[in-house]
Amino acid sequence: MNKLLTVSPSPHEYSRESTRKLMYGVVIALAPALLATIWFFGWAALIVTSVSVVSCIIFEYLIQKFILRIKPTITDGSAIVTGLLLAFCLPSNLPPGLVILGALVAIGIGKMTFGGLGNNPFNPALVGRVFLFLSFPAQMTTWPLPGGFNASFTDALTGATPLSILNENYDKAGIDVLMSDPELSMPGYQELFWGNMGGSLGEIAAFALIIGLGYMLIRKIITWHIPVSILLTVTVFTGILWLARPEANADPLYHLMTGGLLLGAIFMATDYVTSPMSKKGMIIYGTGIGVITVLIRRFGAYPEGVQFAILIMNAFTPLINIYMKPKRFGEEVKNG
């Protein structure tokens, strides 16, 4: 045999998992929500999503190729995930120029300034979204109502989101009063579940997001710790508020299904790079997000707080990683 033997350190066997497969797994998990949003918002949703995804990929490529001068890694799929998530927290009538700006901030500032994939402290999509939200509050807070493919872009009906209605009416009226007021046209539980209401692209259809969660759990892309701890915390916290004063608060179920809570808890808080690594840490992180979300929703000026909550807890992630170590084998001896 003339071929030389290969020598490498053990192990010699590798699993089939790869970064790319994980990222495309997230994309697949986002697909049901994407289909739902296209169903409700028609072409507008498709345009915003594709502009966001394509510009994220292009910005990543350009920055890596010409500024960082490293081999572009756009095929790993992380830019697609960022693009999709960014689009999912934008309203369907946002002008493409703003979407592109958001993508630039998300990839350029949120990701590449820190050294690219794996090094960013904050979820890039949320950095882009928060930038747009603070810079263009008017465009970012008018959501068209669902009109399907027949709706025209220009004069789509816009409406307030259920959370902003709630925000204005805390301490004034309970959820049942608000829901029975025809003038407010608050969506009912069914609309919330299926997504037939106004809102950002990805946050309307609860069922589609839950399908995505199921897929990611089955494929073991994520573990249950973060989404479950967030949703449980929100349920408990809003449940206490609701039980204490039902006439002034919305019930937990309504809170769970409105706004970007599910999208955030399932897809954004679980971003590998910006979430803690030990199971204990994940639960602390999730609980923190849940608490901050409810605090902002109920007591803050903004109707929605998931994105801010995630960004705030992102900042705590390194600290959590330092103090929340996994249980070492043989650390405390309990024999039996």
Binding site: L22, Y272, M277, P326, K327, R328, F329, E331
Partner: peptide, 18 residues
């Protein structure tokens, strides 16, 4: 590739290391 902090290494380590 770069570490994406997916924490899989932590969850598979039988000795509870990172």
């Amino acid at each position: 590739g770069p570490c994406i902090r997916c924490a899989r290494c932590i969850s598979v380590c039988p000795m509870g290391l990172e």
